[in-house]
Amino acid sequence: MTKVTMTVNGKSVSKEVRGNMLMTEFLRDELHLTGTHVGCDTSQCGACNIHVNGENVKGCTIFAAECDGAEVGTIEGQANADGSLNAIQQAFQDHHGLQCGFCTPGMVMSAASLLKENPKPTEAEIRHYLEGNICRCTGYHNIVKAIMAASGQDVSSIAAE
């Protein structure tokens, strides 16, 4: 067991962890932050995406011990301070960018990283960036649309008749 200390969604936490404890397990089992999901075991689906020191990473493919001293962000820390949905979350709701909701936390975390790096991404850039986030419900149409909308782009003509 190793002691790790990190900041999660702005709050400092310290826990004794096993060496083989993944961040997904640390967040879900130790901190009871169950918004970060596990959808695969080959580091591909992105349901577990979180931010570590400001970077988008797969929570299922990083050990808690590797995050000692890190700033960690999860879906539970994304809403505005007053609890209202942030711009990306709101765009996902406005444009029906989610159905079952399971991939959604990872999608929102990835979208946040994308817009930080590229504040006005094109459709193609969004689709490329989401390569590591699999959604089985939406067919991606409304996810891409929501991210474009969240970046302030006019989406009213997308797939218009």
Binding site: G46, E55, N56, K58, S110, E131, G132, N133
Partner: peptide
Amino acid sequence: IGDPAVRNR
């Protein structure tokens, strides 16, 4: 390579 999250690690 991979996807953005993979490239960050």
